[in-house]
Design a protein around this nucleic acid. Sequence first.
RNA 1: UGGGGGAUCGUCUAACGGCAGGACGCCAGACUCUGGAUCUGGCUAUCAAGGUUCGAAUCCUUGUCCCCCAGCCA
Length: 700
Amino acid sequence: MSDPTRPDPSASSVAAAPGGAAESSSNNFLRAIVQEDVAARRHGGLVATRFPPEPNGYLHIGHAKSICLNFGLARDFGGKCNLRFDDSNPETEDVEYVESIARDVRWLGFEWSGLYYASDYFDALYGFALELVDRGLAYVCELSEDEIRAYRGSVTEAGRPSPYRDRTPAENRALLEKMRRGEMPDGSAVLRAKIDMSSPNMKMRDPPLYRIRHAHHYRQGDKWAIYPLYDFIHPLSDALEGITHSICTLEFENNRELYDWVLDHTSVPARPHQYEFARLNLTYTLMSKRKLLALVESKRVRGWDDPRMPTLAGMRRRGVTAEAIRSFCDMIGVARANSTVDFDKLEYCVRDDLNQKAPRAMAVQKPLRVVIETYPEGETERFPAPLFPPDVGKPGSREVPFGRVVYIERDDFSLDPPKGFHRLAPGREVRLRYAYVVRCERVVKDADGEVVELRCSHDPTSRGGAPADGRKVKGTIHWVSAARAVDGELRLYDRLLSVERPDLAEGDLPSLLNPDSLVTLTGCKLEPELASAPAGSAFQFERLGYFAVDPDSRPDRPVFNRVVTLRDTWAKLAARDAEATATPPPVAVSTAVGASGAAPKVEPKRVDAATQKKHDARRALAPEDEALAAELEPIVASVLVAQADAVARYRAGKTGLAGFLVGEATRAVAAAGKTAPAGSGPKALAKLVDALVRRKLEAG
RNA sequence: UGGGGGAUCGUCUAACGGCAGGACGCCAGACUCUGGAUCUGGCUAUCAAGGUUCGAAUCCUUGUCCCCCAGCCA
């Protein structure tokens, strides 16, 4: 990988990285806009987008939506997409973030056409500022921050002009240069656009363009004492790069007027346009960089890449694949309405991808020792186990060692099995996956009454899993040979937050955190081959979930992160039963009789009587139309014959089809060259066709 | 009380003025040596009220609710 912090002049167009970011993107309003612009050859038929993160934090799943959108659009329309660091705030930005962002974008599967830094435009930007000043469109204002706020007015009251508003261009130029030379202290002045202090759009009330900050910039060093602000930088950076579609989130809607103003009043080489879409919100997930930073700094998580974090780095470490994130972004769509996506949707995408990719293995998270007394002491054998189930259809298998003593999952044994429990219990049989059917003969307890060991017998005829007599064994559980097991650490993650909608929740951040978001299990028993799996590789631990090797892992002490559990229908049923027994329903549930099979009652749309009468009158055929009706009749009839299928469905109750059939008939009539009778409006014909179609449908 | 946006199944999201569809979720069932995967069927959706129209989620009017804007952050 080349240095991600340096522009790569050789890259000229957006390409999907190996591994392919080539999902078919569903349609959305932005895609429609781009499509139309390309069709109309609006920017010479070209498309150029950009992903413009500020390097003041790590990228998260919300950014992934924007990345997929911007890079996806460019890819699909043969255009370009730049990665641009919007780094104009020297106080919060850092090269660490630049590097992580570049890494994450690549990891997600996208390659930028060009890599740029807004800070590289500072000279050009300053030139545009001078241009504005010279044209009398910007002035240096020496009001204090508080005064500026007061002068700005409020959403309901107009602002007042700054006393410095009418300085001459020459005066302003001298002052701006003085600011630039660092001869004025922080906060003593700002450069402001001269627009309209009484604009109903607060953003247009002489917005600041530059502020003085004697601060060290991570890339520009101490070259600058003044730093441009977002509303000035962004349109100009877009124009400088020849961006055609500048896509941002909804909260910038009000900034669009200013975006356009800047471009309309400077001599820019191109004319980009801004479009806004709704940012991603996810249930149980924080998406604010500020709050994520707080978690990192307060050490409530182990870093930006903590596997519980919604950051791309965290998700990657956890074992979530780039493909899963891309398909998630594709699935959630892009729109202009604020929304919050169910976390389940993300989990679905993760499982869906890992199901195809993660080889199966067996691991026991909470071991219970099982001695198979009927199995000869000292004997061992190996059972072949496929790496993937038949439905995945991938080749490969491994040999799983077996012996007289194995570990099974504590949860797979019950002294007092609930109804529907298909696992081990005293006197019951269960299949050890790929091995033998065993029966629990005795339970060994310690002094406290805790179950510490099971003594079982096995059915030697069931070698490989199927008893010779053909009897059905409902339960199959995973296990690991005690003699060959490798001890490992499993880190079980759950949602970071305990509230579904943290944006709506009250209480400070710490109180919203899920105390069980990380459960670390040690002494877990793993299939021996798992110990040597490289960091990052993912497995499905059968019946438990998908796990990925953490970078902390070492061959003598393997560490796995649980990416996501398997869907667990049994757990769901058990939880439901537990709830039912805990709180029996106070009232009998209304009987289901009559609910089954009964056609849903459809309430007709309420229309007042007069309107209905008017409609009926229109629908009735007037005597003078009968002649024309006779002409149209065969055309309508043939349409209904051609649409026999739709007619049948209409008669079966799908009355919405009437409109469709009228539409078809109207087209057929027009195609036959029939026109409205002389003296009546063009609508008369449609009205007539409608009446004919409905008459025929009802006559049916 | 200014301005800019938005409202479609529980949740996301589609639908030239012409069959309100898909996905997740949930429910029921089938299958299964993973209570996984897969398959089948199902699920009280167009914010409200008027209007225009043969026909409205879509156009018009009025209203309701939600989001954004008063950083020298982005």
